[in-house]
């Protein structure tokens, strides 16, 4: 053996010479910043939950969820949330009836058919739709879709109606569905497509029978997220669908949704602590729970396809 191989005495020169407090502090600050998002969720839960609990101290959960009259401004107010849920449901159904076929169709076209050059132009153009403020969509729904287009098709239509809000909301959601679906289709390994082509399948057969089934969980995640966005959208319905709670399935009538109730009541000058003030939070809680469940389903589904193809 040779000179330096036995352990020498003294302090290890490789140990940390000076403590690096700065590094530790920085890491602490970064962790703290990351917890802001946790506090945001916590803040949302607390801020909807506490007034809601007070609300349900005065109005029973059963009355809230299962009765059909929502008249918080009446002398004798009633808090049956079903008309708002119905309004949300009708408008969301119209929106997804527009957005799912158009969004999925756009995604298949972009992913399987468009040339790379066409894709470079078409995709960002479509995504401009996602960048248009919702108040602009609301204005367009009311002023153009209802008063220029729909009145000529349905003469009896009300100025504020669910149909125009739903249609425009559907267009608004197309980029969400198209973009997420396309991501899912892009993640399908090329080998699967090649396999189908090698068997003599056409592009259409390959897209419909190979790519879509393989990307299904991602596509469903896109649908779920799109529906969640439709349920949570506020400005379009506030402007174009009116503010009248209406327990109906007729899309030509005006109706109020959960979101537009929150917006209308919250914008007014309601006294803190009044039952009307608390009702904002009760409806907010319902909205948050519904969208939270849908978001979680969507996150799970996305994770599933990522795991499958990585």
């Amino acid at each position: 053996m040779t000179t330096a191989s036995s352990a020498p005495g003294g302090l290890n020169p490789l140990r940390q010479t000076k403590p690096r407090y700065g590094e530790a502090i920085i890491k602490g600050v970064l962790v703290l910043a990351a917890t802001v998002s946790l506090f945001t969720t916590f803040g949302i839960v607390i801020s909807v939950l506490i007034p809601s609990l007070e609300f349900f101290g005065e109005i029973s959960l059963g009355e809230f969820l299962f009765t059909t009259t929502w008249t918080p401004l009446f002398a004798n107010p009633q808090y049956g949330v079903l008309p708002l849920v119905m309004g949300t449901l009708v408008i969301t159904l119209i929106a997804i009836a527009v957005a799912i076929p158009l969004g999925l169709g756009s995604a298949i076209y972009l992913s399987e058919y468009a040339s790379p050059r066409a894709r470079r132009v078409l995709k960002p153009t479509l995504e401009v739709l996602a960048g248009i403020p919702t108040v602009v969509f609301g204005f367009f729904a009311l002023e153009f879709i209802t008063q220029v287009v729909l009145v000529n098709i349905f003469p009896g239509i009300q100025v504020f109606n669910a149909l125009s809000a739903g249609l425009v909301m559907g267009i608004m959601i197309i980029p969400t569905i198209a973009s997420l679906s396309e991501d899912a289709m892009a993640a399908v390994p090329g080998g699967l497509r090649d396999g189908a082509y090698a068997l003599g399948a056409t592009k259409r057969q390959t897209a419909l029978r190979v790519v879509i089934p393989a990307a299904l969980s991602g596509i469903v995640a896109a649908f779920v997220l799109g529906i969640s966005r439709a349920i949570g959208e506020t400005m379009i319905v506030t402007i174009a669908a009116g503010l009248q709670p209406n327990m109906t399935l007729n899309p030509l009538e005006g109706m109020q949704t959960m979101t537009s109730y929150i917006a209308a009541a919250g914008a007014g000058d309601v006294a803190t602590g009044s039952i009307e003030y608390k009702s904002i939070f009760a409806v907010g809680l319902l909205l948050f729970v519904i969208t939270f469940v849908m978001n979680m389903i969507s996150i799970r589904l996305v994770r599933r396809y990522r795991q499958a193809y990585q």
Binding site: T40, S47, I50, R229, G232, G284, N295
Partner: peptide
């Protein structure tokens, strides 16, 4: 934190309004 952020990204904006109003 990551899943939480994914979820927050999809929380309706009006719910943030409720948070702002209450807090």
């Amino acid at each position: 934190v990551e899943v939480n952020i994914q979820n927050l990204a999809a929380v309706p904006s009006i719910v943030y309004g409720i948070l702002g109003l209450a807090i």
